[in-house]
Amino acid sequence: MRSSAVNPGSAAEVATEAFAAAFSASSTPMVLTDPSKHDNPIVWANDAFLALTGYDRHEIEGRNCRMLQGEASDPTTIRQIRDSISAETQLEVELFNYRKDGSRFWNAMTITPVRDEAGNLRYYFAAQADMTEKHRLETALKGANDDLERQVQARTADLLAALEQKTALLHEVDHRVKNNLQVISSLMLLKARRTPEGEARDALQGMAERIGALSTAHRMLYSEGDVTRFNLQDFAADFLSDLTAGVDTDRMAINAEIDAVAVSAAMAAPLALMMHELATNALRHAFPDNREGRLTISARRRDGGLNIRIEDDGVGISAGVPNPAGFGRSLVDMVVRQLRGTIDWDEHGPGTRVEIKIPLDAATLSGSTS
């Protein structure tokens, strides 16, 4: 029986030849330099490297790889390569290089020090790739993005200009509506003063006050920066100021707790009319014969809706003097339906409590009050 042994040296040589054959046939450009020789020259390159650079083999052997550098090559990147070689460390960089015919290309390089078994530096191996098309696409994409951004900015500027124009127009509309409502209210008040006491005079007085409330709502819209929103708290402060001006504060206390709720502009007039009607009716009918009392008005945002409560400690609805010509309660019920809300009238002895719940997402109203 014959025995055989494998020569380790021969196995290493076979492996080296196999790697050399694989690298030579690879489509990835590769080059090997020898740092033990002057100026770290090229000592081997595969055919892919020659195809990438356009040089013949005899034109590159013995020369440093800087032969591929030129005017567009980044000095900072060149310094990184130099420092990495001095430190004997691996480096991955991209650099503008030049072919033999002078054309430029983006060269992505991975430079790796090659050491022997003892750890001594023997060679530098560089695998390379032409990244020109990638950079071209990136540049084209950046150009397209820049152009799109310019278009978006231009379109945004146009939209902002149109919005400013629309806002100015809406402000002007609210301003004119407010002025017209004030004129109508003043005319009705003037007519009421010249009308004998009775139902006709009371009716004129009541309509003038309702129109005044609508005028206040449009004035608030005119003064707001956002013409699409109406701040209920600001309106309530203005409305209550007018309300308390005609009240004897020695016998009547008016308390208000209004959240800063922003509602759509379309809800401004209905809310203004409803709050005015409830508050003035309470003051007018709940405290006859100079009766002392308290009126509380609250508006809170709860569960995605607006909860409004008007409460007094007066004589109550059933004890009030019937007014066949009045339609305040019917008007409030109509406005609440228009706002798609619910209303509850409750006599809690003494006094009356009215609770209203309105959904704040009711952007589309069933009608128009203003």
Score class of each variant (00 low, 15 high):
residue 213 A to F: 06
residue 215 S to V: 05
residue 219 R to P: 02
residue 220 M to G: 02
residue 220 M to N: 07
residue 221 L to I: 04
residue 222 Y to F: 00
residue 222 Y to L: 06
residue 223 S to R: 13
residue 223 S to D: 09
residue 224 E to S: 03
residue 224 E to N: 12
residue 225 G to M: 13
residue 228 T to Y: 00
residue 228 T to I: 13
residue 229 R to T: 09
residue 229 R to P: 08
residue 229 R to H: 04
residue 229 R to I: 10
residue 229 R to L: 12
residue 230 F to W: 05
residue 232 L to T: 04
residue 233 Q to G: 11
residue 239 F to C: 08
residue 239 F to I: 01
residue 239 F to Q: 10
residue 240 L to P: 03
residue 242 D to C: 10
residue 242 D to R: 14
residue 242 D to E: 13
residue 242 D to T: 15
residue 244 T to S: 12
residue 244 T to F: 07
residue 244 T to E: 05
residue 245 A to G: 03
residue 245 A to S: 07
residue 247 V to A: 00
residue 248 D to T: 11
residue 248 D to F: 02
residue 249 T to Q: 13
residue 251 R to A: 03
residue 252 M to A: 11
residue 253 A to T: 15
residue 258 I to G: 03
residue 259 D to C: 12
residue 259 D to G: 02
residue 259 D to H: 10
residue 259 D to S: 09
residue 259 D to M: 11
residue 260 A to H: 06
residue 260 A to S: 15
residue 261 V to W: 00
residue 263 V to Q: 02
residue 264 S to M: 05
residue 265 A to D: 01
residue 267 M to V: 00
residue 270 P to L: 02
residue 271 L to K: 00
residue 271 L to W: 05
residue 274 M to G: 06
residue 277 E to W: 04
residue 278 L to M: 03
residue 279 A to T: 14
residue 281 N to V: 09
residue 283 L to F: 00
residue 284 R to P: 02
residue 288 P to S: 06
residue 289 D to T: 14
residue 289 D to Q: 08
residue 289 D to G: 11
residue 290 N to I: 07
residue 290 N to G: 07
residue 290 N to V: 08
residue 291 R to L: 15
residue 291 R to T: 14
residue 292 E to I: 15
residue 295 L to G: 11
residue 296 T to N: 15
residue 296 T to K: 11
residue 298 S to C: 10
residue 300 R to T: 13
residue 300 R to C: 11
residue 302 R to K: 13
residue 303 D to R: 06
residue 304 G to I: 14
residue 305 G to F: 03
residue 306 L to H: 11
residue 306 L to E: 04
residue 306 L to R: 07
residue 308 I to M: 12
residue 309 R to K: 10
residue 310 I to S: 09
residue 310 I to V: 15
